[in-house]
């Protein structure tokens, strides 16, 4: 392989890795929002997932246990959000923001003793034979299992929403909770499930950061990725395939920025750090200008509280 190809492959591989946590978090939020609930607490849930997964890995020595524990922790925190917004009917925006602040604080507090602790993160999986194909093997068959999981989940969510009856019910609840209630669907229960799925996915996204991407715990290590995931869902007009596109775009620009710095170009590191956020939002704004499409895909009841007797 020539050095150029090698660099390109390295960038592409790193792009997949950088985009994967966004895919997880955005998929979870997509399902949550499709049910009509706006959870702004992704950042907080990711951080709690990251620290929970990290601690579990340190204690058990198994990164797989860490992943499971991270998802459990994310689910648990989202359940708290669910009780507040769905049962006690608090404002979803305010509660979500509070959840983020809570997550930042709690994860920093719990993780205090684990800063700098070394762990054995989740290792890439080399598919036999296929993994040995030059270039293609590196690009497609030598990733960690979570990258593959993210793609499987993406396909599963897309299929679930578009093709299954349960997905239809979920969309109906997010479209008009009054109508769904009048027909007799348990609006609140369905929303709880969607919120918990979102929590589990955010936890998973956090675990990916602390167990795979940079196998260590540092305070506030999500660095705004939760917010990007949130933006991805909206700008992708609630369609899973576009979420993937946006996530990899973000990942790609992050990695290219790092390579530019490594190559010794004179550029402010702050500017480069800003670039992926800016570019992702710009591109997604441009592709989501069609008001009709937004109207068709946006859950009409998003963020509206529902009380069955009102």
């Amino acid at each position: 392989m020539s050095p150029e190809v090698e660099t390109l492959v390295a960038i592409l591989v790193a792009t997949l890795r950088a985009g994967t946590p966004l895919v997880f978090a955005a998929l979870g939020e997509l399902v949550t929002e499709k049910s009509g609930v706006l959870n702004l607490g992704i950042e907080g849930m990711m951080l709690i997932g990251a620290v929970a997964g990290f601690i579990a890995t340190v204690l058990t020595g198994s990164p797989f246990a860490g992943v499971v524990f991270a998802m459990l922790a994310g689910t648990l925190v989202s359940l708290l959000f669910g009780v507040l917004t769905l049962t006690l009917l608090t404002n979803q925006v305010a509660t979500g923001l509070a959840l983020t602040i809570f997550g930042i604080g709690l994860s920093a507090f719990v993780g205090l003793g684990y800063i700098g602790t070394p762990i054995q993160g989740l290792q890439p999986l080399a598919v036999p034979l296929l993994g040995d194909i030059p270039v293609l093997g590196l690009l497609l068959f030598r990733h960690d299992p979570l990258v593959y999981l993210s793609l499987v989940l993406l396909a599963a969510v897309a299929w679930f929403l578009a093709r299954t009856r349960a997905g239809l019910v979920l969309r109906a609840v997010g479209e008009s909770h009054e109508a769904a209630h009048a027909i007799g669907y348990p609006v609140i229960a369905i929303r709880y499930l969607a919120v918990m799925f979102g929590g589990a996915m955010s936890g998973l996204a956090g675990a990916y950061l602390s167990l795979v991407y940079t196998p260590q715990w540092t305070e506030n290590m999500t660095a705004g990725r939760g917010w990007i995931a949130l933006a991805l869902v909206v700008f992708a007009t609630w369609r899973p395939a576009r979420v993937l596109l946006g996530a990899y775009l973000f990942g790609g620009i992050t990695i290219v920025g790092l390579h530019i710095q490594a190559a010794g170009f004179e550029a402010s590191s702050h500017l480069l750090a800003m670039l992926p956020y800016l570019a992702t939002i710009l591109v997604l704004v441009l592709i989501s200008r069609d008001a009709n499409r937004i109207r068709l895909n946006a859950p009409a009841a998003l963020g509206k509280p529902f009380h069955p007797d009102a």
Partner: peptide, 16 residues
């Protein structure tokens, strides 16, 4: 009407 605008007629009916 308790109909869902963004769904098709058949989907709306399937929900019921």
């Amino acid at each position: 009407f308790n109909l869902f605008d963004t769904l098709t007629v058949a989907e709306n009916i399937a929900l019921c």
